[in-house]
């Protein structure tokens, strides 16, 4: 294979140094902190870990976290795809503005996101009369947390899918039309399979981001124990209250779920490459 190291078999010193830096960087910044969770969590043995994980508060928090993440995944997958298709294929006035706004969740601090929803739906907020008359609460309740989670994880699917759609062009779809396929058939059989990998990637990132959200849902949800406390909020409280095993165990579980998602993604990528 023609790699950068190919002229001669020997690797240049500069290349060795670069590789060393990369390995060290990733190890110190990613691997070591994750590994550090293990001894802390297991400091009182496996039984203590399991016991702390099946506590009611921990379970309720985990269920809420997973639920919020799944809702964010479904909604952002659908709308991310629609956004990507519209932004790539259509031309309209203000398109570049929309394109820029999509990046906002990346740059706005989650705490500020939570605050924005408080301002909108909280006391004397613009939308307060509307939700009140409809008879449900947004602030300090799961609808608000759902909105915040969707908001912070919104760009991933769209940003992953857009470049692929762009590169793919429209000829495949036009070919499908000339072969007699309707727009609907073409979407399901040609467009969607074409962006499948990017969509999967975007969904994985959305899920991971949603699982880890903290600031926005704390502000908008209020971190009410057993009600609006998600796993990350639970971990924060556990550490505050010196319930170290509970905190580290829950943290480890979240990390494992995120890793499992990433590994699944890698496995599916590998299978595709073999196709």
């Amino acid at each position: 294979m023609a790699t950068a190291a190919s002229p001669g078999k020997r690797m240049a010193t500069s290349q060795k140094v670069l590789i060393g830096i990369v390995v060290l960087y990733v190890t110190l910044l990613v691997a070591v902190p994750v590994l550090a969770l293990f001894p802390k969590a297991f400091s009182h043995g496996l039984v203590a870990v399991v016991q702390s994980l099946v506590q009611k508060d921990a379970l309720v928090a985990l269920r809420l976290t997973v639920l919020l993440a799944l809702i964010a995944v479904v909604i952002n997958a659908v709308f991310g795809l629609v956004l990507a298709m519209v932004l790539v294929r259509q031309n309209f006035w203000g398109k570049s503005v929309v394109n820029a706004i999509i990046n906002l969740p990346f740059v706005v601090s989650p705490v500020i996101v939570g605050f924005m929803f408080l301002v909108l739906f909280g006391k004397n907020g613009w939308f307060e009369p509307v939700v009140n008359s409809l008879g449900f609460r947004v602030v300090f309740s799961w609808p608000g947390m759902m909105l915040a989670t969707i908001f912070v994880s919104l760009p991933f699917v769209c940003r992953e899918v857009m470049p692929v759609l762009q590169e793919q062009g429209i000829e495949h779809e036009q070919a499908a039309y000339t072969l007699g396929a309707s727009r609907w058939q073409t979407f399901w059989r040609v467009t969607l399979p074409g962006v499948r990998r990017a969509l999967l990637y975007g969904v994985t990132l959305t899920f991971a981001r949603a699982m880890g959200e903290f600031g926005a849902i704390m502000v908008v949800g209020g971190a009410l124990i057993g009600k609006t406390e998600t796993s990350t909020l639970y971990i924060f409280r556990a550490l505050e209250e010196r319930m170290y095993v509970a905190g580290y165990s829950a943290a480890l579980l979240l990390a494992v779920i995120s890793f499992a998602t990433l590994i699944l993604l890698e496995l599916s990528k590998r299978r595709e490459v073999k196709d």
Binding site: Q174, A175, A176, T178, G180, A181, S182, R189, P193, G194
Partner: peptide, 27 residues
């Protein structure tokens, strides 16, 4: 294009990459 019944061959072929040859022809 669906109503016209004209077969179109693109310069870039525009084959469906995720389908086998059989699936492409059967489309």
């Amino acid at each position: 294009p669906q109503q016209r019944g004209a077969g179109f061959v693109f310069q870039s072929y525009a084959l469906f990459k995720h389908m086998t040859i059989t699936q492409n022809i059967a489309f």
